[in-house]
Amino acid sequence: MHIIYHCYGGAHSSVTAAGIHLGLITDETIPTPEEILALPFYDQPKQEDHGYLRFLGEDQKGNKIYIIGRRGLKNSFPTLVQSLGKLLGIPSEELLVVDTVPYVNWMMVLGGFTSRRLDWVSLGRPLVIRGTRKAFKKFVQLVHKVRIQCEGGTTH
């Protein structure tokens, strides 16, 4: 199964959720700022990277995990992925599109904007990391739901 975590910029919430899913970061305790920053692509993508689907790895069950910054395509994104998948011959049940934005808090929004859009990394990065730590349990719950969903999807 192909699991795509998507958010506005593909730099924080989708990366965190994908990192949890792949076990790159422990989901039992709140990670340290260094552990969060060590996640691949965390607080790295810039505007020109938006729209690129990135493969992050395979989980223990062989599901392929991707991240993307889809900007304002939010409402059309799941339909778009299914449409492109159909054209590529990928069955719709093999694609799972997960929006991570509902779990983002104001610190992540403000910190992410300051770091990525304004390029004030020294100001924005600590704030977005703090926000990520605060929202971490919600991302863990989301990933837990996704794992259950894909188990159900693959047993059909």
Partner: peptide
Amino acid sequence: VDRDKQLLPKLAVSFSEAL
């Protein structure tokens, strides 16, 4: 799409490459 149509070609190319 509603907005950000300029992302579509990038998305499509990276989608087929990634998969």
